[in-house]
């Protein structure tokens, strides 16, 4: 059975795994972006908090994803919930960091003009800082989402479903075709998502 025959004969399973994968990553990213943007904005008010949060997210990211997921099993069991929790934790760093630096690295002349004109700090945050930080935020969200897709595959190991299942099953059953299909699809999804979000980012930059 060659590669394409395999793809055609199994397409319903492959499609449902793909959709499952996208679903998990999508839910995780919605939560992650909400939390990350909120945290990123909040920590701009307090340097101490910013340093702590950035360090924690930094360390979170160095924890091997496989280990992070495994550690969640005793607490949350297996399945989609721990997978989503793990993904959210894991994708915080790029979002929080980019939101924070995006807001903090705005041309001082612009801020001085805004203050001098009589805008309140609240207003400056809403009408100047956040809109100007959008491209940086988007870049963080892009990195995080692409990471999420890849790590989502590893979540297949803790019973979250998705395309990772094909890879892990393929390895244990020594089915090269399963492994390759899973790996190729994940790669394609990652690349397409990256390109798409890159396009959005460029649009915001203009």
């Amino acid at each position: 059975m060659n590669f394409f025959e395999f793809l055609i004969s199994r397409w319903p399973t492959i499609l449902s795994l793909t959709l499952e994968h996208l679903f998990i990553v999508f839910i995780a990213m919605v939560i992650s972006v909400t939390v990350g943007v909120a945290v990123g904005i909040l920590i701009t008010k307090n340097q101490m908090a910013a340093r702590i949060v950035l360090n924690v997210t930094n360390i979170l990211m160095t924890i091997p994803s496989l280990a992070l997921f495994s550690l969640l099993i005793p607490v949350l069991g297996i399945g989609k919930i721990p997978a989503i929790v793990g993904l959210v934790a894991y994708t915080q760093l790029p979002i929080v960091r980019n939101v924070y630096t995006g807001i903090m690295t705005i041309n001082p002349a612009i801020l001085e003009a805004a203050r001098g004109m009589g805008l309140t700090e609240k207003k400056i945050m809403r009408t100047i800082r956040i809109p100007l930080a959008l491209p940086a935020m988007m870049s963080g969200i892009r990195t995080a989402t692409v990471m999420g897709i890849g790590i989502g595959a590893i979540a297949g190991y803790i019973g979250a479903g998705g395309l990772g299942v094909y890879i892990f099953q393929g390895i244990s059953r020594s089915s090269d075709q399963m492994v390759i299909v899973g790996a190729v699809l994940i790669s394609v999804i990652s690349i397409l998502t990256d390109q798409f979000l890159g396009g959005v980012q460029r649009k915001l930059n203009r």
Binding site: N107, A109, I110, L111, E112, A113, A114, R115, G116, M117, G118, L119, T120, T127, I128, P131, L132
Partner: peptide, 21 residues
């Protein structure tokens, strides 16, 4: 009040500080 004061004073700086967005 600071905000009230600033709203009644025009302010122009070298880098213009125009809001780019």
């Amino acid at each position: 009040d600071t905000i009230e004061l600033r709203l009644s004073i025009g302010y122009i700086i070298q880098d213009t500080g125009l809001f780019p967005h």
